[in-house]
Write a protein that binds this DNA or RNA. Structure first.
Lengths: 207, 207
DNA sequence: GTCTATAACCTGATAGAC
DNA sequence: GTCTATCAGGTTATAGAC
């Protein structure tokens, strides 16, 4: 029942090509600065096919955006609700997962945050950060170990340590603080450092 | 020689009104999504006056953007090069300064980072983060106390602790994690917490 | 499904009267 | 300096042939 060509086959259908081009152009330039002609050209297809397959620029954007939201926050869920691991292990796992995702999608956070800020699009926000913060297994484990720590600050700090350098990267580039290769090297270092910092944070009482 | 009405006088000249409207609209919706008509309407002036005073949308944007860059990074310079204070005092001062600036300009960082990422505009990047990192008095003091710490990671961590929650705020709103008032309250807490975390970080040897 | 042609509208910018 | 009117070009979307 499976297709003959199986191994890592890229979907070369017109629809897939358009979607892939849309992913690239939207994340690169944002919704407003991206023209449907940019997407069509990038995909190597005729402009009218975009509307044939996706009805409108807005609908195509919704599809891409939902994918990106899932990529940015959907990967949290399985980790924070893993019943078989310790708090420390969950945190290490989470950080590693995030840093790997970010090194492959460096502009993902700033794209998502900015489009949400601009607030021109209606979203079905099924993802519940609230649950992560108050009802997840990780939250319970954190509360058990450190009831004095505010889980909001804890989550924000860890995510910030991972995500912020990727958001600030355009500044680093523009001011020649670090070039792209140095940046990658520094992010590799952080993969090992952030778990250490987090561990210290978790075992320090702040007076 | 001074004007009669002196005290906190808002500049109500046409030019100033346009600039203020541009600040608001550009930071709110970004360069591409902002139309010159939006700015004119917000300023309560005729559309053609925008071109009369500023020649083009692009030039007006440049002016606003340079202001915002100065606001986001220019305030660092006097603090990191203050010769009369200790490392600890500098860091506390810097964090307080930044948190206050951010509570009054919550969308400033994401606006600046995103426009730099989109990279459609030429910029004179006179601001040298490189100097802050390697030649500032703060950098020297840090190197003296903790030569084992990478100043890049140190700077990124502190700025990230301050800035990241403001960047992620649209997510918090969209997912109803915290409303605007709760957010402000949490940021007030962080004003006191971040110096403590930083102090601990500065006095911990990570093995 | 894919193409060409074009409709319908929007946007930045300017000419010219006052 | 400020206004109205308008141009020239760009943008999304669709009609209709193949």
């Amino acid at each position: 029942m499976r297709k003959e060509k199986e191994e890592v086959e890229v979907d070369s259908s017109t629809e897939a090509k358009i979607k892939e081009a849309a992913r690239k152009m939207f994340t690169q330039k944002g919704y407003s600065a991206t023209r449907t002609r940019d997407i069509a050209e990038e995909a190597g297809i005729n402009l009218s096919l975009l509307n044939y397959y996706f009805r409108s620029k807005e609908r195509l954007f919704q599809i891409v955006m939902n994918e990106k939201l899932e990529l940015l926050f959907g990967i949290l869920e399985p980790v924070v609700n893993d019943g078989g691991t310790s708090l420390e292990h969950k945190l290490e796992h989470l950080i590693q997962l995030y840093m790997n995702m970010l090194s492959e999608n460096p502009t993902l956070p700033i794209f998502v945050m900015n489009e949400l800020k601009n607030n021109q699009h209606p979203f079905e926000h099924k993802l519940s950060l609230k649950d992560f913060l108050h009802n997840s297994i990780l939250a319970k484990q954190l509360n058990e170990k450190r009831p004095d720590l505010n889980p909001f600050h804890f989550l924000v700090n860890i995510l910030g340590l991972c995500i912020f350098p990727y958001i600030a990267q355009p500044i680093f580039s523009a001011t020649c603080l670090v070039n792209d290769m140095e940046f990658q090297q520094l992010m590799e270092e952080r993969k090992k450092l952030i778990p250490k910092w987090t561990h210290t944070f978790l075992n320090t009482v702040f007076t």
